[in-house]
């Protein structure tokens, strides 16, 4: 990304790691052996994604993938999600989202559980862009829908 004279918050939003995941999304495409899947829709822009999970008998996510269209933020978030949740127990993955959502929605406070978000910290730039938080959380809403085997598409609303 060109780090020319743009505002710091814009550079924060479109960090290198985010741009990289948006341009070259990991685990993109249908997961043939999926045990869970769900569709996510952002009604604001009409973006759609489908998330696929393969959850083992031990409740751990063995593989994850996604397909769909989206902005830089939602594509990067979905790509990072598919890397992050592999190996997690499905119940932990849902709790992880709660932490991520609160981290993305407001400035960090003292009361939040201390969890290392790893690469997902790269998405923290959306904090300065309330209208873009939903772009980052859509894949995670979809993860929740997939794990709860919901038939209705997940939305950011």
């Amino acid at each position: 990304m060109n780090a020319a004279p743009e505002a710091q918050s814009l550079r924060d939003l479109y960090r290198e790691l985010v741009m990289d995941h948006a341009r070259n999304p990991r685990n993109f495409g249908k997961l043939e052996a999926s045990t869970h899947s769900a569709e996510g829709i952002n009604p604001l822009c009409g973006d759609k994604l489908i998330l696929y999970l393969d959850v083992g008998a031990d409740d751990r996510v063995r593989a994850a993938s996604f397909e769909g269209t989206g902005c830089v933020i939602s594509l990067a978030s979905a790509s990072l999600l598919t890397e992050t949740v592999v190996g997690m127990r499905s119940t932990n993955a849902a709790r992880y989202f709660d932490v991520l959502r609160s981290r993305l929605s407001k400035a960090p406070g003292g009361t939040e559980p201390v969890i290392d978000l790893g690469k997902l910290q790269a998405l923290e730039g959306v904090r300065e862009y309330p209208s873009r938080v939903k772009c980052a959380t859509l894949p995670w809403h979809t993860l929740g829908a997939a794990l709860s085997c919901s038939d209705t598409p997940a939305t950011t609303e």
């Binding site: 822009c45 902005c71 830089v72």
Partner: peptide, 25 residues
Amino acid sequence: IHPHDLGTIVDHKGVAVRSGHHCAM
């Protein structure tokens, strides 16, 4: 470039435009 990304960047320049499906999917 996705319309949402474009919309955010031009807003940084003080330019207000609509991005999305414009209620006409």
